[in-house]
Design a protein around this nucleic acid. Structure first.
Lengths: 345, 345
DNA sequence: CTGAAAGCGCTAACAG
DNA sequence: CTGTTAGCGCTTTCAG
């Protein structure tokens, strides 16, 4: 049985296409008898109105595009899940693309989608795009009136709605917590040295140090590049500087760091505390379970989707908003407990 | 600047729409001068042919639908990644839906997509659908000539292309490996007791036992239900039966099991070996690192996408195929090493 | 070389 | 109550 169209039903009953259209849509303009006959026939033949034709006619596709840099990263998986969930509940499908951290793929995808396929776009910048700073493709998008919501990895040069983690506050809060547990020489290990996100966290870290009268030592900020040996970097750190805490800016680095410390028989958190960013699947299963900063990925996705769909559906232009999502520190066993309230802090 | 259509360009130059169409498509029918003028104008105004109109006309959307039960499961994330990658490389976009293990959502999604939006569908059954065994919606799909590829959680009642893990062989291979390391009382802990996948693995397990003259003891097959306490189940097992190996049918259960054993001061693998299914992100970071069965999720996704697109593009109907993807045992530190070749096995 | 007309599947205003 | 017509944006014969 091939796909069936209004035309076919019309031919079958010897009536016009518009009559059939009205009948299947249960219009009051059509006689009960005819309507029932047609509807029965339609059901039996699995008639389904062609979505593409409707999109063309109504000029809405009920579809939004989502571009994430790397779906294997649990944070993005969570965001994606949040987007899908709320988009779906609001009647939208999503076309999803993975830019694989490549500028070119991001560009191609944006161009492909901005062609009437989707009514709006949710995007987090690829690493390469961020490094290059080339966001013309996104500016075109908003020039062409296609709603865009950026999340997490955003660009200041693009004027659109944004949902971002409050990374500054996260860096600040995390550092302050470590200070409160008695740590003073706090290292940051970052594999995302050239992202806005990474910089903000370090800024928050600096502020916390300053407020607590701890001097900032730039040698404690360690950048891990693609082919660097984390083991080596940490060894150097341990040999040359007294340190008592490590903040890892991503989960894998946090776990790796933990394992390296364990292999050197350093007790966590007694000798060195560890806090990691991005509360994912690993942290609670390693031992000691890692204290992590949760970014509420799913919530971010839900927010992004709601903001986008609101903008698609509301007429008149509301001003662009930037939503700051606060992080939570999930305390586990890789950090010391804060001393009682009566402590000297 | 609003979206611009052929009509607008035509009006601007006082020529007909079809002329503009030909010009932007660089047809030889149009004079060089006019073509250049029009192309220049089109480029300046970011003209992009409306994808929806083209889809309607050409009757192809260059889009495929993907329905996964649960994207937070790393295996599915991997499959999804594989699908996206190859679909993209072959010029297809993907509309992705998460059924959230719900029959109703799966049904709704299939109906939504089978309406001309996508040219084909890749799907893994939701838990609920599998339990219910209701696959009418999928049979309708193939009746309506919409290509379907099922992967991992498939149904025998649906006649379509399939890509499945060779779970029987996986169960067999894993068990055999454990036997070779000297284990004899091997437990299977399963949270997927009513899936085809789970059953096949147990069947493979039985075969391996039989071949090696080890008697099958059904009390060693432990089913973990949603609200069951794994800790308790394992304690019972340890108390009442001599056991020396545990096969966990999913990664979380494997890690949980490991932690439970560790908390009871049972040495892994010296006293009890552990093998888990689905090599995900956790296994290599816990200690001891877990020996796991890898199912090559990304490869499965790639295969599924290729098979689907082949079927979409080839005319004439080729017979349906079922592709069996072999698993690999990733040996880490939760199992004993196999004794030298000179051993008595 | 350029344009008119038809049509992809559907809806909606307007006649009959 | 039913049908005719126009049109969503585009391509593609077929005339001119």
């Amino acid at each position: 049985m091939k796909k069936i169209a209004l035309k076919d039903i019309a031919a079958n009953f010897g009536v016009s296409i518009s009559t059939v259209s009205k009948a299947v849509n249960d219009s009051h303009e059509i006689s009960k008898e005819l309507k029932e006959k047609i509807q029965k026939y339609a059901k039996e033949h699995h008639y389904r109105p062609n979505h593409v034709a409707l999109s063309l006619l109504k000029k809405n596709t009920k579809t939004i595009g989502v571009i994430v840099p790397n779906i294997l990263n649990y944070f993005f998986t969570l965001v994606f899940y949040g987007i899908e969930k709320t988009a779906n509940s609001r009647g939208y499908s999503i076309i999803s693309c993975i830019s694989d951290e490549s500028y070119l793929k991001e560009l191609k995808t944006v161009e492909l989608l901005s062609t009437g396929t989707v009514e709006g776009l949710i995007l987090s910048l690829s690493e390469e795009t961020q490094a290059k700073g080339n966001v013309e493709h996104l500016q075109n998008l908003i020039e062409n009136q296609i709603p865009l919501v950026m999340f997490d990895r955003v660009s200041e040069e693009v004027d659109c709605d944004k949902v971002v983690v409050d990374d500054f506050e996260a860096g600040y809060k995390t550092t302050k917590h470590l200070l409160k547990t008695g740590c003073k020489r706090i290292v940051i290990v970052s594999a995302i040295y050239n992202s806005s996100v990474g910089k903000l966290r370090v800024d928050g870290y600096k502020k916390a140090l300053k407020e607590n009268g701890v001097e900032y030592d730039e040698r404690l900020i360690v950048e891990v590049r693609k082919n660097d040996d984390l083991q080596l970097l940490i060894s150097l750190l341990l040999d040359n500087k007294e340190i008592d805490a490590i903040i890892a800016l991503d989960e894998i680095t946090a776990v790796d760091t933990l394992n390296i410390l364990k292999s050197k028989d350093i007790e966590v958190p007694k000798e060195i505390s560890i806090v990691g960013f991005t509360n994912g699947r690993l942290s609670k299963y390693v031992s000691p379970a890692l204290t992590m900063v949760s970014q509420h990925g799913q919530y971010i996705g839900e927010q992004a989707a709601n903001i986008l769909i609101d903008r698609i559906e509301k007429e008149g232009d509301m001003p662009y908003t930037t939503k700051l999502v606060k992080t939570s520190l999930i305390e586990r066993d890789s950090t010391k407990k804060i001393l009682g309230n009566s402590s000297s802090y």
